[in-house]
């Protein structure tokens, strides 16, 4: 008699906690985001480009950048919609093991200061048919008490009211 072989597996969940040091550049950026609800960049003293997120050295010209606030520039959080994409497939968040409901929208934004930025495009009921390249957008922060010093302290970017 040919019995199908039973194959075994061992199931487990890897659960590890971390304390990631954000350092004086990204750490300062995240603190300002959490407490003031603003984005900051550092301007490279060598080649003049904005570094977002701020970092200690420019990877293009290798110039050391100063710590906050010298050469740091506060951004307006406003810009225009460059493009967006609709995410259709379920993905597990490796921090929580939960799956984000889909579909949802990701946007690319051209900030007023010229930089590109990527975040969710909200709110949840935003209609794709209302979206056009070039529409003005603004950053929406989560309520102060919900912020943790993470990029997700930004709730989403939305089309500026009255411009849909």
């Amino acid at each position: 008699m040919d019995i199908e072989k039973e194959l075994l597996c061992q199931r487990r969940t890897l659960k590890i906690r971390f304390r990631w040091s954000a350092g004086p550049y990204l750490g300062r950026f995240l603190l300002e985001l959490k407490e003031e609800g603003r984005l900051w960049v550092v301007r490279c003293p060598g080649c003049g480009r904005f570094l977002l997120p701020p970092r200690i050295v420019c990877a293009q010209c290798y110039t050391r950048t100063p710590e906050f606030p010298e050469h740091w520039v506060r951004l307006s959080g406003k810009g225009t919609l460059v493009d967006w994409e609709r995410v259709h497939y379920p993905q597990m968040d490796p921090e929580t093991g939960t799956v984000r409901p889909e579909p949802y929208l990701h946007g690319t934004f051209r900030l007023e200061e010229g930089l590109l930025f990527v975040h969710y495009l909200g709110p949840e009921d935003v209609q794709e048919s209302d979206l056009r390249v070039g529409l003005p957008v603004e950053m929406v922060m989560k309520p102060l008490e919900e912020r943790e010093g993470k990029m997700t302290d930004i709730h989403y970017f939305r089309i500026v009211e009255g411009r849909r």
């Binding site: 971390f18 990631w20 954000a22 990204l26 995240l30 997120p53 994409e85 995410v87 497939y89 993905q91 968040d93 490796p94 921090e95 990701h106 990527v118 975040h119 969710y120 993470k150 990029m151 997700t152």
Partner: peptide, 13 residues
Amino acid sequence: PLWIRWQTTGAIG
């Protein structure tokens, strides 16, 4: 993890 892990859509994105 400090900057982009929350929003990445992996290779498909």
